[in-house]
Design a protein around this nucleic acid. Structure first.
Length: 254
DNA sequence: TAACACCTGTTC
DNA sequence: GAACAGGTGTTA
């Protein structure tokens, strides 16, 4: 999503704003700051946090939650919440039907302080996962304060690729396994980005395009289907961890 | 650590 | 009508 936003809105000036009269609480701050005539200098991402740096040094921080999306069309469709007109021509509209997304003005540096390293940077190494907790490794991978940038799907997929059982207590992973897991996460996320993300149901890029990395899923949503490593003799299993659907193969993930 | 809350939409 | 869905924050 960041890549699409950079192409479409970086360097442009905000020339108008529009809001829904019934803004979700978590978005109410967007009316607090008058952004007209400010320029979008850059768009950053750290984990799941997007930030738009505006020309006066303030950042608009955006977390898309489950169904938030930025689209390049004028405000007006169902579940549109706010919109910026850019250079008197382009429109950047935020749409979020489940309304779990959050927007706020603030400092992206400060917001990042509460997050672990982004999973695609060199700061994310095996040592980041060398923690004492007995929580399942999958729960640790979803904890954004430890490492930022995966949710339920990509935690399952990475653990399959690294051949590690999602239920394993995190403190039982040895250094080799931690390194394997870090490498698997980086490879998988890079591929997912090249595929334009995963349009399981709702996700769309800025141009409304679907991402097709969900065709590459090896575990998520595949309960009962053959394991890609073990063949038809073993099926992908679904369990619940911390209330979240968790898919893995009992044959090749230890 | 678990349960629940926040939302809407889809599927069973 | 119930269950479930990619996330996270609060409460018990």
């Amino acid at each position: 999503m960041r890549r699409g936003l950079v192409r479409a809105v970086r360097g442009k000036t905000i020339t108008g704003v529009a809001f829904s009269p019934v803004l979700p609480r978590q978005l109410s701050c967007v009316i607090d700051v008058n952004v007209t005539d400010r320029k979008i200098l850059e768009i950053h991402r750290h984990g799941k946090l997007l930030s738009f740096r505006l020309s006066d040094g303030v950042d608009l921080l955006a977390h898309l939650g489950m169904s938030g999306r930025f689209v390049l069309r004028p405000f007006g469709q169902r579940h549109d919440h706010f919109s910026w007109e850019l250079n008197g021509a382009t429109h950047l509209t935020y749409n979020d039907f489940r309304r779990f997304g959050r927007l706020e003005f603030g400092s992206s540096e400060r917001a990042r302080n509460g997050l672990g390293p982004d999973a695609l940077t060199t700061d994310f190494r095996g040592s980041v996962l060398a923690i004492r907790t007995r929580r399942p490794i999958k729960i640790v991978l979803m904890d954004q304060t430890i490492v930022a940038g995966r949710g339920n799907i990509y935690a399952c997929e990475a653990l399959f690729r690294a051949r590690i059982d999602p239920r394993r207590a995190a403190n039982t992973l040895n250094p080799d396994e931690r390194t394997r897991l870090v490498r698997a996460i980086k490879e998988m996320l890079s591929q997912a980005i090249e595929h334009g993300g995963s349009t399981l149901r709702d996700y769309r890029g800025t141009e409304g395009q679907a991402g097709d990395f969900d065709a590459e899923f090896l575990t998520y949503g595949r309960a009962g289907q053959p394991c890609h490593r073990c063949g038809p003799t073993l099926a992908i299993t679904k369990v619940t961890l911390d209330g979240r659907a968790t898919y893995f193969c009992q044959g090749c993930q230890f």
